[in-house]
Write a protein that binds this DNA or RNA. Structure first.
Lengths: 206, 206
DNA sequence: ATAAATACTGAATATATATACAGTATAATA
DNA sequence: TATTATACTGTATATATATTCAGTATTTAT
């Protein structure tokens, strides 16, 4: 699932709202009316983009043949129990019992991607990314990381949450989202470095 | 709701099955194909009968304009299903069906306090409070507000999310958590002001 | 006994709708 | 620098689709 633009999101929301209101999908003209476009082709191109990115499917030659992919129509939701792990200054956030602060029940399709545990954030190094102290970051254990992903990384024995940026074959930069914190440059040949996982969502309890 | 005949039940079932399969309602021709009728008018008359008896509604002059009345969209609320409402520039974030973008299943004790709906945030006025664009704020409809609470407030027709601060008996200040935004001072004797609810949590999908 | 509802076929048609084509403009990417 | 993606307007058109009209037949109420 590729990135979605703001306008494409508006169109997607519009389809969902129209569906809730009427029970059937909108026409190109309906979307135009709703969002203020003056040409049906405006809606058409957005729909094609959304289809290409996998957010919707369009039945060709069919009026109102739009369906939102991943909509809750048939997918059975399974409730699961996810552990909450404290982000400790030293040591990996292992799933060992002694690190589990508590457990949270939530559907396994709760976030756009599957995830493995919640990490309780300490410090404000990702403040500008909207991640505050004691927030619970939904972490997916994976090594498939793209530039700009928010990753949970381990350097030697220290675990941090930062933006991921590959500088070269052997150099990675971990960027903080807070000007008071320094970025970390990692030379993979020298340092003991590992990606624990990446953030796929966030949960905050006031 | 009058009695339904066997054939009408077949047509009604056919519409529901088609909806589950494709995400949009069938045409007259689709129904004929599915049930073996040879004339679109066969479907038409059954649809009119179903409409007359109150099982469906038909939008005149509209392709696939069939909606099943009393279908999950409006009826029987499941305990753990919460609506997501877009933060619209004008107008209250009412729970009217047309404002509901989608629904999220989660345990009703998910946040520390009960809540009523998720509000999809627009803009960055609460950035420094870790509330970013498109974040889902869990809103509890209440008027029990303390200083420092994050409230969803309505001034005239505009809805915003801000910190709440009571300045005096008749004056309230709504504080943004972003230096680019101005605070709002409200004179309760002059302005049309209402508290829609307060934030009890936050959910972000990456 | 007669009207009204049900249950169809078959043909005709106005229009609702998807979709292609021709442009313009800007931002991002290679 | 050229190219691709995004984001539109505006016009045109083939066709998908609702909907009416003309029949036939059976069953159910009045």
């Amino acid at each position: 699932m590729k990135e979605i633009t703001t306008q494409q999101q508006r169109v997607l929301d519009c389809i969902q709202v129209y569906l809730n209101k009427t029970g059937f999908p909108p026409t190109r003209a309906d979307i135009c009316k709703e969002l203020g476009f003056k040409s049906p082709n405006s809606a058409e191109t957005h729909l094609r983009a959304l289809e290409k990115k996998g957010f919707i499917s369009i039945e060709s030659g069919t009026s109102r043949g739009i369906s939102i992919i991943g909509s809750s129509s048939s997918s059975a939701e399974i409730q699961d129990e996810y552990p909450v792990i404290g982000l400790v200054a030293a040591g990996s956030p292992t799933l060992a019992t002694e690190n589990i602060e508590n457990k949270i029940n939530c559907p396994n399709n709760f976030f756009d991607s599957q995830f493995d545990y919640f990490l309780k954030v300490k410090g404000l190094s990702m403040k500008d990314a909207g991640i505050m102290e004691d927030d619970l970051v939904a972490v997916k254990k994976t090594s498939e990381i793209k530039n700009g992903d928010i990753v949970i990384a381990r350097i030697d024995d220290e675990v941090t949450i930062k933006y991921f940026k590959r500088k070269s074959e052997k150099v990675i930069e971990l960027e903080a989202a807070n000007e008071d914190y320094k970025n970390i440059i990692i030379d993979l040949e020298v340092e003991d470095f590992a990606i624990e996982g990446k953030s796929v969502g966030l949960l905050r309890k006031n």
